[in-house]
């Protein structure tokens, strides 16, 4: 493979990786704060994709412009889900929480199946086939826009956690649950808020992914697993780790697809996941000692 092709592959992988990173950020936020592994991650993402699809079909809204609407709706969904359902299983063992989310995931995917049917559907954008040429590099416009949107949203999210009062309060809950309660933070409201933020983030990622991928209900488990891979590699609960993991996986998959076989690319992410789980279970940027 010559250098230009390699560079093209690397850039495409990097750009896709940014979107993976944004999606994984949603999983990481929820795990980092509420300590719940959101097994319905891919399902929320696919619901976001379908919402963007409907908005596109209905009023011709570009998926990138539908992000605010989709994010708002999924924020409300996540908030209510945590406040009304997930909070009630906080005292149950880890595996029961996991199973509850798996059940919610099944219900969501089947809901999509009933409403939208099993076939792949996509949006036809007028810039879908355009590309930027930078030197010898050819960058798809959709991929570039998607990456820019993903990075902007991720930056906004990080800024929210760093600078806003609510964001700081949420971080306080994550660090010290009891302490947060003692100083009078309304922990259950903040948890609901966090699940909402996480879902909104996943939904936004869904809108962006719709630019790159045709949507159908059976995508969901694959995206759940992909986000797990990204987050575990980056470090559960580490926000920068999620972004880094996303980019790593994006690039690794692009390289594997180019150099070996496209259908084998996810085998590489799983192999990477297995290695990370075994040798550095806290992830690349996670804190040691769970």
């Amino acid at each position: 493979m010559d250098t230009v092709t390699l560079l093209n592959v690397l850039v495409a992988g990097l750009l896709t990786g940014c979107v993976y990173g944004l999606s994984a950020l949603g999983l990481s936020v929820i795990f980092g704060v509420i300590r719940i592994v959101n097994f319905a991650h891919g399902e929320i993402l696919v619901v976001g994709m379908f919402m963007a699809l409907v908005l596109f079909r209905w009023i011709g809204l570009d998926p990138l412009l539908s992000i605010p609407v989709v994010a708002a709706v999924l924020f409300a969904f996540g908030y209510l889900l945590q406040a009304s359902v997930i909070q009630r299983v906080a005292h149950l063992p880890e595996h029961m929480q996991f199973l509850l989310l798996a059940a919610i995931a099944i219900a969501m995917v089947s809901g999509c199946l009933i409403v939208f049917g099993p076939d792949a559907q996509n949006v036809q954008l007028d810039y879908a086939l355009d590309s930027f040429a930078v030197g010898g590099l050819i960058i798809d416009k959709t991929r570039a826009y998607a990456a820019v949107a993903a990075v902007a949203l991720a930056a906004a999210l990080l800024a929210f956690f760093r600078f806003s009062g609510t964001g700081r309060a949420i971080r306080a809950c994550a660090d010290n649950y009891l302490g947060a309660q003692v100083v009078g933070l309304n922990v259950s409201r903040l948890y609901a808020f966090t699940f909402g933020i996480g879902s909104a983030c996943i939904g936004a990622a869904g809108c962006i992914i719709l630019l790159l991928v045709d949507v159908h209900p059976y995508l969901a488990p694959g995206y759940t697993l992909l986000a797990f891979v990204v987050v575990i590699i980056g470090g559960m609960g580490s926000l920068f780790g999620a972004l880094l993991g996303g980019i790593l996986i994006g690039v690794a998959e692009a390289l594997a697809a180019e150099m070996i076989q496209p259908s084998l690319k996810s085998a590489f992410s799983f192999a990477l996941l297995i290695l990370v789980l075994l040798f550095r279970p806290q992830g690349l940027l996670g804190k040691a000692g769970r």
Binding site: A102, A103, I104, I106, A107, S110, G111
Partner: peptide
């Protein structure tokens, strides 16, 4: 519908 039912049942 069956899947939806399983999901709700397990939840």
């Amino acid at each position: 519908v069956k899947l939806l039912f399983w999901g709700i049942a397990v939840a």
